[in-house]
Write a protein that binds this DNA or RNA. Sequence first.
DNA 1: TTGTAGGCGTTATCAT
DNA 2: ATGATAACGCCTACAA
Lengths: 326, 326
Amino acid sequence: MSIATASRVLNGSTHPVSEKTRLRVLDAAAQLGYKPSLLAQALVKGRAPIVGLIIADIADPYFSQIARGVESVARRLGYLTIVSTAQRSARAELEHVQAMSPYHVTGLVFAASGRVDDSDTHMLQAAIKDLQNSGTRVVKLAHRQLDVPTVLFDNQAAAYDITDYVVSLGHQRIALVDGPADSYTSIERRQGFEQAMRAAGLEPYMRLDGGFEYESGLESAHHIVSAGTLPDAVIAVNDNVAIGVLMGLRQAGVDVPGMVSVAGIDDTPPSRYVALTTVSTPLYELGIAGAQAVLSDLARARDGQTLLPHRLTPRSTTARHPSVRR
Amino acid sequence: MSIATASRVLNGSTHPVSEKTRLRVLDAAAQLGYKPSLLAQALVKGRAPIVGLIIADIADPYFSQIARGVESVARRLGYLTIVSTAQRSARAELEHVQAMSPYHVTGLVFAASGRVDDSDTHMLQAAIKDLQNSGTRVVKLAHRQLDVPTVLFDNQAAAYDITDYVVSLGHQRIALVDGPADSYTSIERRQGFEQAMRAAGLEPYMRLDGGFEYESGLESAHHIVSAGTLPDAVIAVNDNVAIGVLMGLRQAGVDVPGMVSVAGIDDTPPSRYVALTTVSTPLYELGIAGAQAVLSDLARARDGQTLLPHRLTPRSTTARHPSVRR
DNA sequence: TTGTAGGCGTTATCAT
DNA sequence: ATGATAACGCCTACAA
């Protein structure tokens, strides 16, 4: 038989093939341990069973969880996952897009939130547009200036909820340890914080800028203890930072939650190790949904926006304010 | 000019090309935003600028750190990184190898240690042999029954060192919370523990089996507190487990390190969050070295074995035994 | 039902 | 110095 016939039976072609030859082919293929070249297939079909994932830092639990979600559905659906890290830089992201683009990846997932006014964003957008036109499905997992379908959770509401909870504990002098000033995620969480404070008739006690990492929290803790009167509570932009604050405070001899309450956002695994009060954010689910959005045929709304739920997760780094009777 | 000429200038061919045409081609390429198809290139050259990474669980800091190392050098060298998770199952690893194989990946890195007597290992070995014959460089980052070059650190020595340290603190009733009984890593660490105990003339106080995860440690802690006399110290197979033990003990009202000392191995980021005494293991460096081994032309010894150093990192979950005067 | 042949985008061999 | 052209491995009209 010809290679054409073989090809027809090996991939589920609708083209009719007699049962005898079909079996003959199948058998031969099995004997020879035949493996079709995905490269050749991708070349001719203009599509490779690969999904690209662009994150900021694979060692950050936030992204690890997302990656786990993406990889798990990709694997289940028979796709390979290419992951690249870009430290929230649109420039780096663009490079990765260009690196993956020639492979005709089936789907591309942007997990990191962008920077406001990142001057390379428009070039990235252009590259993405090209990809989409060539058939690649693209999705983002956080707010940012990219015109693609989105799967996310409500950062502002999450921050509002944790702040509201801390307020309900009777605290009044509440500090915010913020993330990068130009990060959408950071901005949204700050807004949620401020909104909740406003709703409670409270004024932010102090606000510190920083990054999304543990070290940033550690440093902020030092500022806090050396800035005069301690706050009643401090809310951090995420768990990494909250844990840094927690450690820094305790190192300085400050009892948590005895003297100061500390809370974070995300509920990444380490937060359980320190019994951190936080809000559980659907990171793994974000990865799942994101991968499905680009791989599943039951396509999500073309440029819809899916919102996943979060929930408050009180633990032991927060306590009722001493002045409050229960 | 012909596409042949164009091809010659676009890739660094040694074939002579006149300077005028070279410029003409370069210019045209720039105008058209020409991007060579890596697919076609890979198809004809039988090699794609991709490195495959097979780990057990991307959410485990142990592997996250390794992945970070691999991805960083891959990116720097212009390679894409495909990561797949296989929960230490040779069967799953084999599937991933088969999935990547048709892409003619340049290098393949096995990060997880294998299971002793994993019946699928020989099939995996066969698949690997095929890959190698087709030019793919393969390396493993832990001991296991795979005949490929290796980059690793000394698990047994690491376990010996931490045990020796705990002994030096004056503890005698020392418990080991072990990992999976059939994991090479687990076995080596146990041997290091036992060797150090023997050297100190001590008998292991108790030994619990489990997994490599936090939950396993948490569970073991419950067994420990409900088993009669508390040990002086407990050493865990890794940080995840050690932290679980730590939390479980404290939840049960046991003071650490006041009543019991706890130590782990690996020094993954979370261990700093709880000030865990541990031994720093070169995870990130393992990723770096592994990627270099398969991508760098200054090839490592064909099937050599590179040993990376570790170092003891005492922190605050261990203390001198009360009976010991200093 | 089965076979033929063109083409996907590049590289490399062989002429010219 | 430059240009055809086969080949990489597979898919898919189009013929037979």
